[in-house]
Design a protein around this nucleic acid. Structure first.
Lengths: 249, 249
DNA sequence: ACCTGAACACCGTTCAAGT
DNA sequence: ACCTGAACACCGTTCAAGT
């Protein structure tokens, strides 16, 4: 009877995939801060140092986690135009990132571009180029998308992360609202006019609407530049205060 | 002769301002990671716990640091149009953020909006509203700007953070480039066409140009929506796959 | 080849005490 | 009112050893 630990059945051999998958699971059901080498080791029923045989260090762990979830992003339908291809790809990325909210932070802070990141960026650039965009314009357009290519835009007015939006009595709340209206009149105006209930000053935005609004605005602007045959070459490096205001009407 | 410690002259009394200023200095000459309560205390010649009389915890320290540098952002000239006012404000924010590169990360990760953050956002929203934008459009336009309102856009192709861009012999480099061209053909194309020297695959973007390109593209698009009298009200909450493709030509 | 134990050099933060 | 000392519960990572 060799070592009868009924609690932990014949422990599966660790490997990189199992380590990464456990880390992704851990992050999914918590926040990225809950992913530490020590806790992850604990989850895997192993001593912290055992992980270092499968990932070089914590940074590589985080990179591996991102790589793993980026592979879940669906590809767009074939045969659609460039704008639809870009749109579908980015909204697919958004769906994936919404399932793994921690990934956003990691991507933002990552300085090295992993293969999966480059593959996605290459595919996205390819959509523009296939659509007839010059390499020049594609380059600038990719920069303009920025992190929006991953399907997230910063939430300007974050809901309070705890969930309960500072519960105070009506009196105090009204005083706060009057205070806000005086000090931040424009924010108060927007809140009053667009979000209906003035009690929700820091909440209530339809993030999906905001995202698609911005994305479509960008795609429209890209389309315009493309049709104009925009090029950066004439006075590329000159530090003029140029404006590509290019309305034809 | 009361306590003659010639090394440390009559120690200045600590206060919130002095703590924050020291933290900002520390971050400026290092990275945000170099700012720990313990190191900061050391710099101030004090025991870690002494700081907690002036900031509640580390998060509040970071918030205070951001608040301090946001007050450095210059206001735009008076009497200019909305677009120029917005442009000047954002480029002023950019200049400040470039002096304090750590602030970007902190702003991105901050979930609470401090007074200085709200003041800046209110002023920016005010520029649109003064320019005749509806509260509705101002709201969406602020979302579209996102973190770009702070003057930074993500660097798509970061230069290697260490500074020395992986020095390898010519042979290895050529092999790498051929590899890249096969796996990431579109990125390779952009690199070849727009960045001149194919050796610099992950470097060489003119960040200031990219930033102004994106900013002006957005301002132009905002102008167009404004003149069209764009409004979200008709079918605001419907989850249609709408596109505000609004070319008039 | 893979995992362990003990240690190192760090964190943020608490508590009770000093002046 | 402000600062200190010692401690707690964490980190990532190294090294030398075990099987």
């Amino acid at each position: 009877m060799p070592s009868k630990k009924t609690e932990t059945p014949p422990r599966v051999r660790l490997n990189r995939e199992r380590v990464l998958r456990a880390a992704v699971d851990l992050a999914d059901r918590g926040r990225i801060e809950s992913v530490s080498m020590r806790i992850l080791a604990d989850v895997l029923g192993v001593v912290p140092m055992a992980l270092y045989k499968h990932v070089a260090n914590k940074d590589e762990l985080l990179e591996g986690m991102v790589d793993m979830i980026l592979s879940e992003i669906e590809s767009p339908d074939s045969g659609v135009g460039w704008a639809e291809a870009v749109r579908q790809r980015i909204l697919a990325a958004r769906r994936t990132l919404l399932v793994h909210p921690w990934a956003r932070q990691v991507i933002e802070s990552c300085t090295t571009r992993t293969p999966a990141v480059l593959t996605y960026m290459d595919a996205l650039a390819g959509a523009f180029i296939t659509g007839g965009f010059s390499a020049d314009l594609t380059h600038h357009v990719m920069h303009t998308l920025g992190n929006r290519m991953w399907g997230f835009s910063p939430e300007l007015f974050n809901p309070s992360p705890t969930g309960d939006p500072l519960v105070v009595d009506t009196e105090t709340r009204d005083a706060m609202l009057r205070e806000i209206a005086t000090v931040y009149p424009n924010i108060a105006l927007i809140t009053r006019e667009t979000l209906g209930n003035p009690a929700r000053t820091t909440d209530g935005c339809d993030e999906q609407f905001e995202f698609e609004f911005a994305l479509d605005l960008l795609l429209d602007a890209f389309d315009r530049l493309h049709h104009q045959g925009w090029s950066s070459t004439p006075k590329r490096r000159a530090h003029r205060t140029k404006k590509p205001r290019t309305r034809q009407d």
